[in-house]
């Protein structure tokens, strides 16, 4: 039986019809669509803006980490969150990632979730799919990260993708 997955804009109540007709809409087999749209590669101005934005995010994350530490200390209980923020402050994560980035892969955004574990969520832009894959290989083999989950991945000639991973500082888990 076909499962009830439905992307209709107006979902209908499910019946239990014996017959199901599947209408598959696809390109004609001989009409290979050629996508020639090129992702314009960031110019120097864009690159500088990206770096500035990343720095601001790091500064914001630092401020949040400091606030969390202060709050934990004030409560007299240093929980896992505060421990992580001490052992793995944002600059250390950025440094760990920077060592894995091939030349043509750029870190666009970075979100750090401090909890019992430190979850790292990032979006990246790569000039080519091969460069992006090099980064993934490096991330996969890095002792500092594990539990890698690939997120959205879009590609024309360049790749823009999101990745989640757990940072554990290289001691294994």
């Amino acid at each position: 039986m076909i499962p009830a997955r439905d992307f209709s804009t107006r979902r209908r109540p499910r019946g239990r019809a014996g017959d199901v007709a599947a209408l598959v809409v696809a390109c004609a087999l001989l009409s290979a669509a050629v996508y020639t749209a090129l992702l314009a590669w960031a110019d120097a101005r864009h690159a500088r803006a990206s770096v500035d934005a990343a720095r601001k995010e790091i500064a914001d994350a630092n401020a949040r980490a400091t606030a969390l530490q202060a709050a934990a200390a004030a409560e007299g209980a240093v929980g896992a969150r505060a421990v992580w923020s001490v052992e793995a402050p944002p600059p250390r994560i950025v440094q760990a990632l920077a060592e894995l980035l091939p030349r043509d892969v750029r870190l666009e955004t970075l979100n750090l979730r401090y909890g019992a574990q430190l979850e790292v969520e990032m979006t990246l832009t790569a000039r080519t799919a091969a460069e992006y894959d090099l980064f993934l290989q490096a991330l996969e083999s890095s002792p500092a990260f594990d539990r890698i989950i690939l997120g959205n991945e879009s590609r024309t000639d360049a790749v823009r993708a999101s990745v989640r991973a757990r940072y554990h500082g290289g001691e294994g888990s």
């Binding site: 076909i2 019809a17 599947a22 209408l23 598959v24 809409v25």
Partner: peptide, 13 residues
Amino acid sequence: TAVTVVAPQGVAR
């Protein structure tokens, strides 16, 4: 008979 429409790949994230 009601139909199930199956959209091609490349239309969704």
